[in-house]
C-alpha cells in the first residue's frame, strides 16, 4: 500500500502493490493524515513499486494535488513504471506539471 517518511519539509509516500478503488481510500487516508500533521512544503508520491493501477490511482493523485495545494504545498509524482505510462498519458496528469 504505502510507506511514508517526513524529512526537511517533505513527505515522501512510497506506494507499492496494486492501486484500485478498494485500496485507494486507505492510501488516501494515510497520506492525508500525515500531511495534516506535518504540513509539508512538498508531497512526493513514488510509484516505483506499483505493479497495477486503474483510474482510481488517477483520482488519488488528483485528490492529493487538491489537498496539498490547500495547505500551500506542492505535489511531485516520481518513478512511474513503464507499464503505467499509458494511463498517466490518457489522464492528462502531465499537464498539471507534477510529473518528475
Amino acid at each position: 500500500m504505502v510507506d511514508m517518511n517526513y524529512r526537511d519539509g517533505v513527505v515522501t509516500a512510497r506506494l507499492f502493490g496494486e492501486i484500485d478503488h478498494h485500496i485507494a481510500p486507505q492510501i488516501r487516508g494515510e497520506i492525508d493524515a500525515r500531511c495534516e500533521s506535518c504540513r509539508p512544503a512538498r508531497l512526493v508520491l513514488d510509484f516505483g513499486k506499483v505493479g497495477f493501477m486503474d483510474s482510481s490511482g488517477i483520482g488519488l493523485i488528483m485528490g492529493r494535488y487538491r489537498m496539498i495545494s490547500l495547505i500551500g504545498g506542492k505535489l511531485e509524482v516520481v518513478n512511474v513504471p513503464q507499464n503505467l505510462k499509458k494511463i498517466f498519458v490518457l489522464s492528462g496528469l502531465e499537464s498539471l506539471g507534477v510529473m518528475k
Binding site: 478503488h21 481510500p25 488516501r28 483510474s55 482510481s56 488517477i58 483520482g59 499509458k86 494511463i87 490518457l90
Partner: peptide, 15 residues
C-alpha cells in the same frame, strides 16, 4: 463523490 476520476470508460476505450 469519492475521488473517482471519471475516466473509467475512457480507459476501457483506450485499452
Amino acid at each position: 463523490t469519492d475521488e473517482r476520476a471519471g475516466l473509467g470508460f475512457a480507459v476501457m476505450q483506450s485499452f
